[in-house]
């Protein structure tokens, strides 16, 4: 499955509530996460999306010959 630029953008947007609500989720179980952990978590998510995007556009370059 190819990750389009638009798809990557929407994933980035979606990562924001996931990161923000991370503390709520841990809060339910009584764990108070510091703000820094949210920032780190969001950075990891963004890196993962970037990797997925680069990887899929590389494989797309191979597949492009077919189209």
């Amino acid at each position: 499955m190819r990750l389009t630029p638009a798809g990557a953008l929407v994933l980035v947007a979606f990562s924001v509530p996931v990161a923000i609500e991370l503390r709520t989720l841990f809060g339910i179980f009584g764990v108070a996460l510091p703000l820094a952990s949210v920032v780190v978590f969001e950075a990891v998510l963004l890196a993962a999306i970037a990797v997925a995007y680069v990887a899929s556009s590389d494989s797309d370059a191979d597949a492009a010959a077919k189209h």
């Binding site: 638009a6 953008l9 929407v10 980035v12 947007a13 924001v16 509530p17 923000i20 609500e21």
Partner: peptide, 17 residues
């Protein structure tokens, strides 16, 4: 247009949360 709707989503996540 795409940037606009995504920006609204992100902005609202911050604000309403």
């Amino acid at each position: 247009g795409l940037a606009q709707v995504v920006l609204w989503f992100v902005g609202m996540v911050f604000m309403s949360n």
